[in-house]
Design a protein around this nucleic acid. Sequence first.
RNA 1: GCUGAAGUGGUGGAACUGGUAGACACGCAGGACUUAAAAUCCUGUUCGCCUUAAAGCGAGUGCGGGUUCGAUUCCCGCCUUCAGUACCA
Length: 1120
Amino acid sequence: MDYQFRDIEKRWQQFWAENQTYKVDNNSDKPKYFVLDMFPYPSGAGLHVGHPLGYIASDIFSRYKRLKGFNVLHPMGYDSFGLPAEQYAIQTGQHPAITTETNINRYREQLDNIGLSFDWSREVRTSDPDYYKWTQWIFIQLFNSWYNIETDRAEKIDSLISKFKRGGNSHVKAMSDDDVPLFDAQQWSQKSEKEKQEVLLKYRLTYRRESTVNWCPALGTVLANDEVKEGFSERGGYPVEQKKMMQWSMRITAYAERLLQGLNVIDWPEPLKEMQRNWIGKSVGAMVQFKVQNSNSKIEVFTTRVDTIYGVSFLVLAPEHELVQELTKLEHSKEVLNYISQAKKKSELDRMADTKSVSGAFTGTYAIHPLTGRNIPIWIADYVLAGYGTGAVMAVPSGDQRDWLFARMFDLPIPAISDIQQNLDQEADASKEGRYINSELINGLTYSEATEVIIQRLEELGVGKARINFRLRDAIFGRQRYWGEPVPIYYKDGIPYTINEKDLPLVLPQVDKYLPTDRGEPPLARAEYWKFDPIENKRFSTLSKGPESSEDVSIILNLASRRLMPILSSRFKTIRQEYKIGDYRFDFFVEENNVGIAFELAFPIKNRQKNTLRKEYLQYFNYHFVPILLEELFEQDFEKKLRRKIEEILVKPQLSFALNYNYQNKFEYELSTMPGWAGSSWYWLRYMASKSERKGNTFVPNKSMQYWRDVDLYIGGSEHATGHLLYSRFWNMFLKDLGYVVEEEPFKKLINQGMIQGRSNLVYRLNYTLVPKTEFADLDKEVDWHNHYINRLPLIFLSKELVYKVGTDEEYLKKLETKINSYDLKAELNELGGKILLNLRPENIISKIHVDVNIVENDILNFEKFRNWRPELHNAIFLSERGKYLCGHEVEKMSKSKFNVVNPDDIIEKYGADTLRLYEMFLGPLEQSKPWNTNGIEGVFKFLRKFWKLFHNDEFTFNVSDEKATKAELKALHKIIKKVEEDIERFSFNTSVSSFMICVNELTDLKCNKRSILQELVIVVHPYAPHITEELWTLLGNEQGTLSFAPYPVFNPEYLVENEFAYPISVNGKMRMNLNIALNLEQAEVEKLVLENDHVRQYLDGKNPKKIVFVKGKIVNIVV
RNA sequence: GCUGAAGUGGUGGAACUGGUAGACACGCAGGACUUAAAAUCCUGUUCGCCUUAAAGCGAGUGCGGGUUCGAUUCCCGCCUUCAGUACCA
């Protein structure tokens, strides 16, 4: 049979699933290798061909590592909390969990079709309570930790409390809020519980404080800095404004230095590291205090150029600076207030567009220079940002261009401070070269000397100190949204407390609507039982056996024994209602380690609470337990057994339960949910826990953590550079400090796959108007006539090669017009004598129109499909020079509106998954962005057929010989063994595919069908094209499924040894000819041979060579 | 503006530490097979010049310069494109 990819691929995908081929063991003697993909958000659109690029690359690498004898962890999951599902819920009322699951199923189907070797038993979903239980747990750890600067790591909050008890907080070096009041041990002990908590909150690594947030009114939520692009929300593009709100924050700034230093030890792309460095934005400088004249106030500024302090000629405060009001003198207040309101009005966008104009206002107040004692005027201006440093700067116009512009504008002095500063009337000079002048203390010193001297002096005077500043802000950790992890916090007396770890997860409650309440509270406020019960201290403790009688009948499936047994219904929690098996309807429930089924003959819903709780359980368990349950349930002849059991049980009376739930005197839970990045900041760790280990009381058992340690290879897009990848490193470092994680850095090596852009196809429509031959007396009638016919006329499309002509060649235009008018366009039109007139203005003659790329092949339009695409195209006319319609093309983002989305399913249907995999790799280097086009896919498909043909005779019967391989065949094989090994190690997958083609072409030419060659070749190709190779492996007589773990062939250099080489002979560096010369000859002999050659002499033109360069095995260059 | 990456045929791209530029594939042109089409196979294909042909000559990796026997590769300056970032004191 010819290469039947559909059968082959389906069969092997099934085989891998059934045999759990890629399920990985945590107890292995093999060395570990962890290959991770960035898990996707399951959007409604499904995968397009861009998504699998990284997955295919990582899969090739994983499969290769398996062949190399590694125990490879290669998992996949879903980042399934997020805005789109919630937006959809708001519009349709459908629970986001349902949308999410539908989308996940679609993703899974598409992923399965590609033949990726994931260990699906380790799948994670961030929206799964069993997963977010641990996200919440990490939140609690952060809450209960502080950052000790002395030990340079996070510690449990207890160690802080004991420090406070011993000696107050004045000697504690911690990363904390700026406004912590000082206290001693006694004061601490006298504080009330509430006061103590308030203090501790200022030290916790997750804390609450009023912060300016990016508030997006349209989305009704707070966005992180990296979710705001140019003043608009990244998702949806809605305007974003600044707003003050009480918010949960993460003290990521405590880790700024470690996050920066860590970049030096990890193998990541340089651009990405650079982005993180910029984001962290470390600047080394000093804090300097300026006393305000005739006042007790001080203005603190941050500067990176404390050496220029003698050049200060004014101070500038941000308009929002807290001292502005106090400092403004009465006679200036009008001006200042005007300026402030003006600055407020300026939107983010205006401020960005307008970076050149200079504006500001004088407060009328002066500060005192700490070293010279001179008076320094205090100004306000919006070029100083409230959010960076102290919101105030010391302006040195001679050394800073912005200060210079400002000084110029308001006629302030620009004193020179360095002997190399020139042209200060033209621009500022920030150079650090040269010696200082006009600078008392540091005159004649160099930059580094001066900096040291100044800082020392400032410290002596107590008005300044060296200081490192970071641009990195603490990350806001709350969303006023529904579809996210609930924050495991309740409030008592206005103070946040974490819920008990053993009561996790705190499950997302059911709500009637996914919108904020009328009072503007987040959606969770809609759940009225969203309260913490301090007495039981347990979320669902109120299920109890009650007197109420009902007709519930329950059986349970014991997962360990897989046997059914009756159970007291008082102990179960219903997880899903009305599941049908055969004629029966069930509820599912769980009871510790058992999963059960409850039958409802008539379930009495006596009270509202019960119903609400049932719903809540439904949601909780639906997405975690039910799949497992179903897996068990539909095994063997479960249904028969079930029926028998049901009949047994039904005759016996049963107990039931009732609910008594009291909502009084309970404490409010936190109403906001966690941001999108919470769940993705630790997900790779959860993969380390096997399915059975996940039942345990830690997110990863220590032993497994010790084995897997970190991610060896992480593949994903660079768009997560400052979001996910930074937060993940932060959480990892934190968990390491607490001893839950082994490595400081989570991702040892990272590769950014390039974006696959869309390649749109365009058709060129000719625009024309219609002119009647006969004149209409009435204009209205003419318009009617026109409209009537123009819509009936066929649309005319020009092929690409004609478009240029139309634009430049007037003759051609006229011809075109005549030609069009000669068509029998419409009988009725001809009757009235209408004439088509092309639009006169050249730019209007042709409209570019996007056409669905799926009806275009190699830029040639399929007429028939095009005409059927839309009704108005039904009678379209095509003009071209060669009978084929050539479309134009453009590279842009893949999007539905541009009709350039290609999904992998169509490609797989047409060519198969192996072709898709090879082709995506063949397209170009992994890290490079490139447009998707299918122009070359035929070549890859042809290659696979040719590969298949190597193993078959002309009648397509499997035909492999056991003869001994020839030298040429061995050479071809060992070339590819070496090449692919090198290529994969440096992630150059595209060149491997080329080499496969070369190898198969060579072996085809050699008519090689030797088992010894082909069997090894199958292994080498396997990572790239797993299906076809599995099939051939089996045909070769190997045991099914053993290919994935076969040993990678060992390269033997002997087979590549040649005794002759066709030396390129160049004269003066110009290649002239090749000469076959034995490789064992040395320079002298080679020179002799070369110079004796007649052909060579021709080029020498009788002259004697000046010099001969000889590189053995490479080249001979004769210099004349 | 700053930071980073990249510019090679008609197209995607190859050339890994300086050593035969354009591998592999697409497309195109011509041919074989076929009633025909598809599929398949063969030949050619950087550009220009020259030649009946064989062969030969010249130019050529964004532009200009440099180092070198030899540069797509290293150095200097410039241009263009893409990405990130933006008054960061």
